[in-house]
């Protein structure tokens, strides 16, 4: 590779001459390789963003946000129904996941520090955190879509909630564990029952961290496609107000439109992809700053 260069340098600087060329080369190769690896990561992210901006901005127009998705092969239209469907299902998912995740994380950090069952739950929650999302889609399909006889936004929201919950459990527990014990003791010394100490002292002290967890969960589920394929599916018009039947959503719309042969659909898919990625990256960056804020305090 760059073998001649280190030896040349070695000859010039007297201290380095004592290092055998073999060691120098191994060292230089490592430095070069790890720098290239890092650059590769940055280039890939840059290339993805560039692709989304170039292709996505072409189709940007006010109609994108006001018109529903067009039929196959027809011109015009937008992705307003998919945006609205995604918003509703993601928010419903977070609404279901937040209380459950918050309480489960509280149990793990406050009540179950030493118990066996808490250890098991903590462990399985970590496993669930990286479980394939398509399996969660199959589960919710069996649980809700088949008995109800129809795809629905509710099933989609439940599937997203199942993906969001472990994220919230994990961050809530981690953040509550950072709250110093003396704060809880101070609360208890004032005569507050344990539940009040948790709500008024520990939760409040860890609030920024808990909010971060919820934002991260939001970022995680906003782009999930696989679990929505079998639960909410998609729909090329406005959806029912009761969320029964196919509910259009950005990820599945992108999946179907990007692989379609119609240029108009492909262009809409690119615009949707740009929209969803920018939203998710923004959420991730915001979550990071909330954490920083918490640590500074």
């Amino acid at each position: 590779m760059d073998a001649s260069n280190p030896i040349a340098t070695a000859g010039r600087t007297p201290t380095a001459s004592r290092v055998r060329p073999g060691r120098r080369v191994a060292d230089r190769v490592l430095i070069l390789a790890s720098t290239i690896a890092t650059l590769l990561g940055i280039v890939v992210l840059g290339s993805i963003l560039l692709m989304l901006i170039v292709e996505g901005l072409k189709g940007f127009s006010p109609a994108l946000f006001t018109a529903p998705t067009p039929g196959p092969g027809s011109e015009g239209g937008g992705i307003a129904n998919a945006i609205l469907g995604s918003l509703i299902m993601t928010l419903l998912g977070i609404l279901i996941a937040t209380p459950i995740g918050l309480m489960a994380g509280t149990f793990l950090a406050e009540y179950g520090r030493t118990s066996k069952i808490a250890d098991v739950i903590r462990f399985l929650n970590d496993v669930l955190l990286s479980a394939p999302s398509i399996l969660i889609g199959l589960f919710v399909y069996t649980l809700m879509v088949r008995p109800m006889g129809t795809y629905s936004g509710w099933a989609g929201a439940v599937a997203l909630a199942i993906i969001a919950t472990p994220v919230i459990v994990r961050t809530t527990e981690d953040m509550l564990r950072l709250v110093p014990g003396p704060m809880r003791e101070a609360g208890a010394a004032l005569g507050a029952p344990r539940s009040l100490v948790i709500r008024a002292v520990t939760w409040r002290a860890a609030s920024a961290g808990i909010v971060t967890g919820i934002i991260l969960a939001l970022a995680r589920i906003a782009g999930e496609t696989a679990p929505l394929l079998f639960t909410a599916l998609n729909n090329n018009s406005w959806f029912n107000a009761n969320l029964l039947g196919g509910v259009p959503n950005l990820p599945v719309m992108i999946y179907q439109f990007a692989l379609s042969p119609y240029p108009n659909w492909q262009s809409l898919a690119w615009s949707g992809a740009l929209l969803i990625t920018v939203t998710i990256l923004a959420l991730s960056v915001v979550a990071r700053f909330v954490i920083k804020d918490q640590r500074a305090r």
Binding site: L45, I48, A219, G223, T225, I254, A258, I280, L281
Partner: peptide, 9 residues
């Protein structure tokens, strides 16, 4: 945090 479908595209 880039969604998997974007990697697909």
């Amino acid at each position: 945090s880039v969604p998997s479908i974007i990697y697909g595209m």
